[in-house]
C-alpha cells in the first residue's frame, strides 16, 4: 500500500516535470510565433498586437501555469496555423490512432505468446536454430519497411486491400478495422519477434529450475508442467515488455500512418512539426508523454500483482 502511494506520487511528479520541460523547451525557441503567423512584412505594431492577443507578452511561469491548468481542464491550446482548438483538431484522429494501437497490441499478444511457448518448449536442435534465426531476421525489419512490403505483397500483388484507401471509422467501423489490420500487423510482427525471444529464453531458464523436477516427480505431464507451472513464471518479464510495448507501438504508429496514409495523430504531429505549429506539437507531445509515463506506471503495478515475491515483499 505504501509503495503504491509513493509510486503514484512519483508518477505525478514525473508528469509535472515532463510538462514543465516540454513547455519551456517550446517557449524558448527563437522563432516568434507572431512573426511567423503574420509573415515578415508585418508592421511591428501588428506583431505586438498579436503577441498581446496570444498572451505571449506575459512572463513565462504565468503562461506555463495557465497552460497547465487549461490542459488539465481539457483546453489543449490553439493552433497558430489554423486558429483552431487543438482538442477539436485531435478528436477524430485520436480515435483512429487509439484503434491502431489497440489492434497492434492485441495482435502482438496473440502472436507472441503461442509462438514464444512453441519456441521455448520444442527441444530439437534444427527447429531451434531455424526459429532463433528467423526471429532475429524478423526483429531486424523496421516496421515501416514491413508496412511497405505488406502494401506491395498483400495490397498490390494479392489485392487483399488497396493501399491508401483508408475508411474512417465513423463511416464504416469494420471497414476501417479491416484496413487497419495490415498496418497493425506491420507493427505487431517485429514487436512480437522481440517478445518471442524474451519468452523463449525465459521458458528455457524456468525449465531448468528445481520446481520443474518436483512437478515431474509428482507425475505431471510435460504439457501440464509447461502451461500450468513454467508459463506463469516465464510470463513475468514478458508482461512488462508487452505493457511497455503499448508506448513503443504509439510511436511506431507515427511512421506506419505515413506508410498507409492513415489520418491519425502521427500525421498531425508531423505536419505540425513541418509547419512549426508549436501549440499542436506541444499538445500532442504532452499527450504522448502522459500516455507513456502512465503505461510504465501500470506495467510496474502489473508486474507487482503478477509476482507474489514482489507484491508481498
Amino acid at each position: 500500500m505504501k509503495t503504491l502511494f509513493s509510486k503514484c506520487a512519483a508518477l505525478i511528479i514525473t508528469l509535472f516535470l515532463v510538462s514543465a520541460l516540454a513547455f519551456f523547451a517550446f517557449a524558448l525557441i527563437p522563432a516568434d510565433p507572431a512573426t511567423t503567423m503574420l509573415g515578415s512584412e508585418a508592421t511591428p505594431e501588428a506583431v505586438a498586437a498579436l503577441r498581446a492577443q496570444l498572451g505571449l507578452d506575459r512572463p513565462l511561469p504565468v503562461r506555463y501555469f495557465e497552460w497547465l491548468t487549461g490542459f488539465l481542464r481539457g483546453d489543449l491550446g490553439e493552433s497558430y496555423l489554423y486558429r483552431m482548438e487543438v482538442g477539436q483538431m485531435l478528436s477524430g484522429k485520436l480515435a483512429v490512432s487509439a484503434l491502431l494501437t489497440m489492434l497492434s497490441f492485441l495482435l502482438t499478444v496473440a502472436l507472441s505468446i503461442p509462438l514464444g511457448v512453441l519456441a521455448g518448449s520444442v527441444r530439437n536442435r534444427y527447429f531451434d536454430a531455424a526459429a532463433v534465426g528467423l526471429n532475429q531476421l524478423v526483429m531486424s525489419v523496421p516496421p515501416f519497411f514491413l508496412g511497405i512490403l505488406a502494401c506491395y505483397g498483400l495490397g498490390i500483388v494479392l489485392k487483399w486491400f488497396t493501399p491508401g484507401a483508408y475508411v474512417s471509422p465513423e463511416k464504416d467501423f469494420w471497414g476501417c478495422v479491416r484496413y487497419l489490420i495490415f498496418p497493425a500487423l506491420s507493427i505487431a510482427i517485429p514487436r512480437s519477434a522481440m517478445a518471442v525471444k524474451l519468452l523463449r529464453s525465459a521458458i528455457r531458464d524456468q525449465l531448468g529450475q528445481d520446481y520443474v523436477r518436483t512437478a515431474r516427480s509428482r507425475g505431471a505431464s510435460e504439457t501440464s508442467i509447461l502451461l500450468r507451472q513454467v508459463l506463469r513464471n516465464a510470463l513475468l518479464p514478458v508482461i512488462t515488455f508487452l505493457a511497455v510495448s503499448l508506448a513503443e507501438i504509439m510511436t511506431m504508429s507515427i511512421l506506419i500512418e505515413q506508410v498507409f496514409s492513415i489520418p491519425g495523430v502521427g500525421q498531425l504531429l508531423l505536419s505540425s512539426v513541418s509547419n512549426r505549429d508549436y501549440p499542436v506539437v506541444l499538445a500532442i507531445v504532452m499527450l504522448l508523454a502522459a500516455w507513456i509515463v502512465t503505461i510504465h506506471f501500470l506495467a510496474d503495478l502489473l508486474t507487482r500483482l503478477a509476482d507474489p515475491r514482489v507484491r508481498l515483499g
Binding site: Q209, D210, Y211, R213, T214, A215, Q229, R232, N233, L236, A306, D307, P308, R309
Partner: peptide, 10 residues
C-alpha cells in the same frame, strides 16, 4: 533444496 523445489508463483 526446499527453497527452489517449490514453484514461487503458486
Amino acid at each position: 533444496e526446499p527453497m527452489t523445489s517449490l514453484n514461487p508463483v503458486l
